[in-house]
């Protein structure tokens, strides 16, 4: 077997490192939970910020979405477990109210299910 040329070695290292980096960057990010009592503003820009909120069980919490991202992907937000699908006009606050009856984790996502956020009910 011929020894690997230097360029191939570089490409191998580059590919493997890139794959590891991609995995770490996207799939191993730490979850930062923002604790909410009454209401929270979630900025919709390339995802949701804050991305994970924790809200109390049995209490109505207002979640205000403000879309700053013109991407059509984010123009709708869907909180499937709460039966909410809302159109988010650009730069306008859209408030949704949730009153969770059970504890647990409930996801929300954009209309195409590509950007995700999480509601933790405690």
């Amino acid at each position: 077997m011929k020894p690997m040329t230097i360029d191939k070695l570089i490409v191998t290292i580059f590919s493997l490192a890139g794959m590891a980096f991609t995995y770490w960057f996207f799939l191993m990010k730490k979850e930062e939970v923002v604790s909410v009592t009454d209401s929270v503003d979630i900025i919709v820009e390339g995802g949701y910020a804050p991305n994970t909120i924790s809200i109390p069980k049995g209490k109505t919490t207002k979640i205000n979405f403000v879309r700053k991202d013109p991407s059509s992907c984010l123009e709708e937000v869907v909180l499937g477990d709460f039966k909410i699908r809302k159109y988010l006009p650009l730069n306008q606050k859209v408030t949704v109210e949730v009153t969770p009856k059970v504890k647990g984790e409930f996801g929300f996502a954009c209309g195409m299910n590509m950007f995700h956020g999480k509601i933790k009910v405690v």
């Binding site: 390339g46 992907c73 950007f115």
Partner: peptide, 19 residues
Amino acid sequence: AEFYRATIPALKHRTANMD
């Protein structure tokens, strides 16, 4: 431009989508 406009803030949040 819209692909970049969607990609850059997404990368800031360490997320990615079709764009």
